[in-house]
Design a protein around this nucleic acid. Structure first.
Lengths: 237, 237
DNA sequence: CGAAACCTTGACTTAGGTCAACAAAAGTGG
DNA sequence: CCACTTTTGTTGACCTAAGTCAAGGTTTCG
């Protein structure tokens, strides 16, 4: 694997800084296609909405969010990506969202022209896009139809492996029923993801704490005391 | 092109009835892959959320919506499809949404196993999925951050070619500034798409009428008197 | 024509937003 | 390591956009 200078955004805020890279997991989706890995610091911008779309990205390690802004400053975080997810496919010739790292992140980059050519890559993309689409569908339900408590509960449950939507096995009422989370998002970022305000997120979290469902070790670090109870609060069971 | 018996849903409601087919446009995405066209009546179900995913569909003519239900009956319409859009790619082995026609619709169907095999098809899929993903991103902004008026205005503007998001050229202040729409959706369907209630949709529409921005010829048929004014009400300009 | 489905409007309620004050962390520079 | 600023999070008081409930009007369809 080779390493790459990061794309300078059209807006040139210079927030995207690449630090010496680290060898990441070998079996990425792009590794066979000569993708280059760049390491981004936490809170750096990979690209801006409206930038000319030149590269396709795969998140290899860490966490990245995609968001859109309305002209008056309202923001909606449309996806929170996990390793294996791809981003940067715009459909047009501009990126439709801004991509910003939430944590330090390793990102594999590949030229869009190359994507056109490779059949294997296309196959991989279909799979990734289908999955991300399913997540977007579920998120639409959250944004359109769920209460504040249900949104926060769903958000937490999504961070519990095997639970919280998609392949969620539903609440169990025995055995191990606690879990430790690191959110890697500020209250503002969570609010913008869940379509709420910072204050509402804070209030819901405080309420869950008061009711003993969670313990807040740091704003960022949440211990779920009762995964089942929380699961029941998502509106999905 | 051959014609196909419609899949009987696992839930067997028998709403999906296939009527004698009509020859649709020749240049569909699937036509080269031996896809078979089925004609569905308005308000018939193509498949249910949870049905085993066997086929991939391309909407050739008419309109189809995809929706998800919460156990207590709340519904979110996650996509309203137009000709050229594909649906039925689940990512797992079950459909993640219910697909229901809004109008009489011609749908081209293709076995999922065949999709696996064809490189050309994969290429087509990537393109379609990318576009639909962009629409989903924009819809997330609507659901998470827009007011009721902005949602309805955005909804109407999306039905005006070249306007209302994506390649929207923004408000013009001269020339032809009116447009005729047929919604093909009930107030309930619109509400479930926009994350509102039936009453709120009705009130917003009445208000737009009162303000002279639109004329309501039939609940279903809306004449936009001032496309520019409406465009300004979407929150995007 | 009558029933059913759909739409509109009004009166009232409420979940979540807004505004404001403060508390707690996290950087920053000496 | 400690003041000091900045950023982030919490809480309370109040407000409002949109939801709920209810009644009545319209359209559609058998």
């Amino acid at each position: 694997m080779a390493y790459l200078e990061v794309a300078t955004s059209a807006h040139g805020a210079g927030m995207a800084r690449v630090t010496p890279p680290v060898c990441a997991s070998d079996k990425t989706n792009f590794s066979e296609f000569g993708g280059k890995i760049a390491r981004y610091e936490a809170h750096s911008l990979v690209y801006y909405e409206g930038d000319p779309a030149r590269r396709l990205y795969e998140l290899v390690k860490g966490s990245v969010m995609l968001y859109k802004l309305l002209p008056d400053g309202r923001r909606q975080v449309v996806e929170v990506l996990r390793p294996g997810d791809i981003f940067g496919l715009a459909g047009g010739d501009e990126y439709d969202c801004t991509a910003e790292t939430l944590t330090e992140a390793d990102v594999q980059e590949i030229d869009l022209r190359q994507v056109e050519r490779s059949d294997d890559l296309q196959r991989t993309l279909t799979k990734c896009l289908t999955n991300q689409m399913r997540v977007l569908h579920e998120h639409a339900v959250l944004l359109g139809r769920k209460s504040a408590v249900e949104r926060v509960a769903s958000f937490f449950m999504h961070l519990v492996p095997e639970r919280g939507g998609l392949g969620c096995v539903g609440p169990r009422d025995e055995g191990e029923d606690s879990f430790d989370l690191q959110l890697h998002m500020t209250r503002q970022e969570i609010a913008d993801y869940l379509g709420l305000t910072i204050e509402t997120v804070s209030r819901v979290v405080s309420d869950l704490k008061r009711r003993g469902v969670i313990r807040v070790d740091k704003a960022d670090r949440i211990h779920l005391n009762k995964v089942c109870t929380l699961c029941h609060m998502t509106g999905m069971h």
